[in-house]
């Protein structure tokens, strides 16, 4: 077990957002957090790496209590890819090298540089390595953000809507990349998603949030039309196409 979220509670000021969240993610598992806009998916993700401090409950990564760790320590265990990253005038190589920050005291070591080099090859970014990231497309920028999180060498990868604002091809590329990394490196990964079909296609497990609580959770193949209808308030059908579940709205 890599991630153990145990009874997490969170509120913005006096406005409760998350109630009693509990779930686990094992090595080699990709979990999709699903639910309507504003239900608290991103908030939950931020609680998991202590960017938001939960009001109650515990978050353990490989048995260690995250809420008692310093931010620098957390960043050695958890890689976080936020929804947006700002394009600065920095080369792709340097932007990814930044992910080594938790490991770097003052100077970069040859190992830091070679890990970045390997990650760039792994993600197909090597030809862009000296391009400035403010000249990249949305898909390329997202890959840079993922590469940055990977070179942190975390055990747990958190992705906040990794495919929003990407075209279909880039969505497939990014998600199969995430899936491949999780499989190959035996990491655990949690991502928030809006696109149900993409989520069910690439994730192993799902978590439906409704009204600040977990409505349903399980294997992606066990998602039913009733669950989706209850969570999103929209009647749907689930078809099997080439052995993959496809959610189609009935409205």
């Amino acid at each position: 077990m890599i991630l153990d979220v145990d009874g997490v509670v969170f509120a913005y000021n006096s406005h409760p957002v998350l109630r009693n969240m509990s779930f686990q993610v094992r090595a080699g598992e990709l979990l999709a957090i699903l639910g309507p806009n504003g239900v608290g998916k991103t908030t939950l993700l931020k609680c998991v790496n202590a960017i938001h401090r939960p009001r109650g409950g515990a978050v353990r990564v490989e048995g260690r209590d995250l809420l008692r760790m310093a931010p620098a320590e957390i960043s050695l265990a958890v890689g976080y890819v936020p929804q947006r990253s700002e394009p600065a005038r920095l080369t792709v190589f340097d932007a990814v090298l930044m992910g080594r920050k938790p490991h770097i005291r003052w100077r970069t070591s040859p190992r830091d540089l070679s890990i970045v080099d390997a990650a760039l090859k792994h993600l197909g970014l090597k030809p862009l390595s000296l391009r400035s990231i403010d000249t990249l497309s949305g898909g390329e920028l997202q890959k840079v953000a993922i590469a940055r999180a990977l070179v942190q060498e975390p055990r747990l990868l958190l992705l906040d809507e990794p495919t929003s604002s990407l075209d279909l091809k880039n969505q497939m590329d990014i998600l199969s990349l995430v899936r491949r990394v999780v499989d190959e490196h035996a990491m655990a990964a949690v991502m928030t998603m809006h696109d149900l079909n993409a989520a069910l296609r690439f994730a192993h497990k799902f978590l439906f949030l409704k009204d600040g609580a977990i409505y349903a959770a399980g294997d992606c193949k066990d998602v039913t039309a009733e669950m989706v209808e209850e969570v999103y308030g929209l009647p749907v059908e689930i078809h099997q196409i080439n052995g993959r579940p496809m959610v189609a709205p009935l409205a």
């Binding site: 790496n49 960017i51 310093a70 931010p71 620098a72 320590e73 957390i74 960043s75 050695l76 958890v78 890689g79 976080y80 890819v81 936020p82 929804q83 947006r84 990253s85 700002e86 600065a88 920095l90 932007a95 930044m98 992910g99 920050k101 938790p102 953000a145 940055r148 999180a149 942190q152 958190l158």
Partner: peptide
């Protein structure tokens, strides 16, 4: 420069 969230994810206060 890469965004506050990215920075927080990298352990920057």
């Amino acid at each position: 420069d890469a965004g506050d969230e990215t920075a927080k994810g990298l352990g920057v206060r």
